[in-house]
């Protein structure tokens, strides 16, 4: 199991091979748990979310399609959708729009599980952390509400008593700053 790729493991999971699911758990529980903690800041809720994510991996019919991007980004999207659904239910807010789960497809394809890939993951991590230094307090707060807690742009505008347009242009600036600090692999090649 240890030397299988994420794709191999997902294919085994699709035919209900338990050790493959356990291996995926070992590889990614830290990521999923950290994500859920960042969103909920509550251990019990994070545990519930981890359980939902791995149950989804076990029961998914659609599965992971490698032509559409990296496994880790697919998993992050699954995790975010489940997390946001969960905390929106907690907020009893049924009016918010769920973010389109198909959006992850646009991510560029990279080879997984290679040393280069692991280095590139680490590089992205460093780049993103560095770029956060350039964000203002209100930009960081916007990301917390929008990305991690799943509020819609309109809800954030209401909460902050600002026009939606202001929130949108702040988001645009924020994404631009992040983007400018990412060395893009597409441009390197």
């Amino acid at each position: 199991m240890k030397n299988k790729t994420d794709l191999d493991l997902m294919q085994l999971v699709m035919i209900k091979h338990r050790p493959a699911l356990e291996e995926l758990y070992d590889r990614y529980v830290k990521l999923v748990y950290s994500f859920a903690m960042k969103s909920t800041n509550d251990e019990q809720q994070a545990r519930t979310i981890v359980q939902s994510v791995f149950t989804r991996l076990w029961t998914t019919r659609a599965g992971y399609d490698p032509s559409k991007g990296e496994y880790i980004n697919w998993l992050i999207t699954v995790t975010r959708n489940i997390t946001i659904d969960y905390i929106r239910k907690q907020r009893r807010d049924q009016t918010a729009v769920t973010m389109d789960p198909e959006i992850w497809e646009v991510m560029p394809d990279r080879t997984e599980n290679t040393p280069e890939h692991i280095v590139s993951q680490k590089l992205i991590r460093e780049q993103v952390k560095r770029s956060y230094q350039y964000l203002s307090k209100s930009q960081v707060e916007l990301i917390q509400y929008l990305y991690w807690e799943g509020y819609s742009l309109r809800e954030i505008a209401q909460m902050r008593n600002e026009p939606v347009g202001t929130v949108k242009s702040r988001l645009h600036q924020t994404l631009k700053i992040l983007r400018n600090h990412l060395v893009h692999e597409k441009e390197e090649t």
Binding site: D26, K30, S34, R47, Q51, R125, K129, K176, L182
Partner: peptide
């Protein structure tokens, strides 16, 4: 470009260890 930036956001999070007993609970 906006989507690339959006997908980079989770890389900012600090990774923390999941509780050891969580695996058996989930499985």
């Amino acid at each position: 470009e906006m989507r690339d930036a959006w997908y980079a956001i989770p890389y900012e999070m600090e990774e923390i260890e999941a509780p050891a007993d969580l695996k058996s609970e989930v499985m």
